[in-house]
Amino acid sequence: MSDGQEKTQPRRRQARGERRIAQLLEAAATVFTTTGYTAASTNAIAREAGVSPGTLYQFFPNKEAIAIELGDRLMHEMRDTYGEALAPVDPATPLEEAVGAAVDRFIAFNCEHPVFFALMHGPDIPGRITEEHDALHATLLARIEGLLSSFLPDAPRADLVRTANMCLGLYKAGLELALGHEGAEREAYVQELKNALIRYLGPLVGDRLGRAARTRP
């Protein structure tokens, strides 16, 4: 066997392994979303993936390891999402536009990955996921505070923290309702969520928005 062939074979095995891991994680996402983390089993995940339990154990020792790997990947993607959704905005941007853009990005992510909500908010999730989610939550709050400061540059820090917590609480409540429906009814709940956030934030930033609108060319 030539040196080139010897180098190619490990790469091929690695590629097959990565595809198998992706297959198992996709199956786990389906099972966790359908049954919840607690009721899920490695046998159910293997069955959903179309492989034997022995094949699954070649890559993951247990259900917790699968959930942690899946959670790590989802949280990395979520960080990219909120980085885009909660980037600083021009203070002249209408509140409806800023809120709508942020909500749309987060809703799209959760609709595309329903397992994220199932893993992050369900009971008995692995401790490492809880820790990672707590860190994500803290960073998300900080980004919301940064976005709010675009509209309220003179607000005391305590007010920004309180308002950011209220916004995140409203969003989580609306998200759960939206994910519980489909089609037009889901869209209606998403719009209600936007309305609730706008009506909450409107009185806080209304005067500033009014000044910005009058100075716009």
Rank of each mutant, 00 (worst) to 15 (best):
P114D: 08
M78C: 06
L177E: 00
S149E: 15
E6A: 15
M75W: 06
D80V: 08
L24K: 01
F32D: 11
L175Q: 09
P217L: 05
A138S: 11
C167T: 14
A188R: 10
F106L: 14
A46P: 01
A164L: 09
M75E: 04
R214T: 13
Y200M: 08
A87P: 06
L136Y: 12
V89N: 06
L25T: 13
F106W: 02
D124I: 06
H121V: 02
D104I: 05
T38K: 03
A46L: 09
Q14S: 00
I68D: 10
E48N: 02
L95G: 15
A155F: 07
R20M: 08
R214Q: 15
E131Y: 04
R143I: 12
D159V: 14
A196S: 10
H113T: 11
V205E: 01
V103C: 06
I125N: 13
H121D: 05
P123C: 03
G146K: 10
V89C: 05
Y200T: 11
I66E: 01
V51L: 07
A188M: 11
L74F: 03
Q58K: 09
V51K: 00
Q191L: 00
T93I: 06
I129N: 00
F32H: 05
D134M: 11
V99I: 15
R211P: 04
F109I: 07
Q191S: 07
Y82A: 02
A28S: 09
G127N: 01
Q14V: 12
R105S: 12
L204A: 09
L24Y: 03
L74N: 06
A27K: 04
P94Y: 08
T139H: 05
